[in-house]
């Protein structure tokens, strides 16, 4: 059953840099339903990152309304927004942002530490489950520096899954990875999407956007275009088509 997860109405965001006002977003209307895999595209400065920050409840809009899973974030204070992020959102970053000298398992457990309702036993079980979902069960006790870039990003995806969020927000999640590893990560996202996860994926690479179900293109703070992906690619198939001589896991 599809219902609206994200509803944005006439959203504006201004930044004041000295005496200059930068209008990053100038009236965005957007709806994302559950089960969608949406790519937000655009050049740098188009406002897509600002949009993601607002969708991620890290920042409040100057004007406009944003409802996440039926909750109007404009009415919440800083602490309530943190609680909302903890329970409803999962983040995947370009630079992974894993804690150094901390095992994969403990990295995945991290969001659950900020939810006092989760016992330490449940925390461990859910983190193990999330690592299984990204195929890294055998690496759960490895430190980030013992993992390749793709594996680190998988740990980060497991961390974004562990609180069972209503939407996963990914910010250039393949930006630091080579083509092959990017396809692997996209295959994982597609697999999660097939299982019903809603994903919002910010990218500036058109070929990555073709793995999603819908593309929204930003330019100069406005939505310039929006279209469903008709010729959706399967990352798994693309991966199999890559010549075998590139079959080297280049970690960064």
């Amino acid at each position: 059953m599809n219902h609206t997860i994200i509803q944005v109405k006439d959203l504006h965001k201004d930044f004041h840099v000295g005496e200059v006002t930068v209008r990053a977003l100038r009236g965005i209307d957007m709806e994302i339903n559950s089960g969608e895999f949406v790519a937000i595209m655009g050049a740098s400065g188009s406002g897509k990152s600002t949009m993601l920050n607002i969708l991620g409840c890290l920042e409040k809009p100057t004007i406009g309304e944003y409802q996440l899973d039926g909750i109007n974030m404009g009415e919440l204070n800083r602490n309530e927004l943190a609680g909302l992020r903890n329970k409803k959102l999962g983040f995947v970053f370009q630079a992974y942002n894993l804690l150094p000298r901390t095992s994969a398992l403990e990295n995945v457990e991290l969001p659950l530490y900020y939810n006092s309702k989760v016992s330490s036993r449940e925390r461990r079980e859910r983190a193990t489950e999330a690592l299984r979902a990204v195929g890294l069960l055998d690496r759960m006790h490895h430190m980030p520096n013992q993992l390749s870039g793709g594996q680190q990003q998988r740990v980060a995806i497991a961390r974004s899954l562990v609180n069972d969020p209503v939407v996963i927000l990914a910010d250039e999640a393949t930006g630091n990875l080579d083509t092959r590893t990017s396809y692997e990560i996209m295959a994982l996202f597609q697999e999660l999407n097939d299982k019903g996860k809603t994903i919002v994926f910010v990218t500036h690479e058109p070929d990555i956007a073709r793995f999603t179900t819908r593309n929204i293109v930003f330019r100069d703070g406005l939505i310039k275009g929006e279209h469903p992906v008709t010729d959706r690619l399967s990352a798994l198939e693309m991966l199999n088509q890559l010549p075998p001589d590139e079959d080297v896991d280049v970690s960064l």
Partner: peptide
């Protein structure tokens, strides 16, 4: 700093 940013993004409040 990045660790703090991450902790905040996954739900850590200022007081935490």
């Amino acid at each position: 700093t990045r660790e703090i940013g991450l902790r905040m993004s996954i739900g850590g409040r200022g007081i935490d």
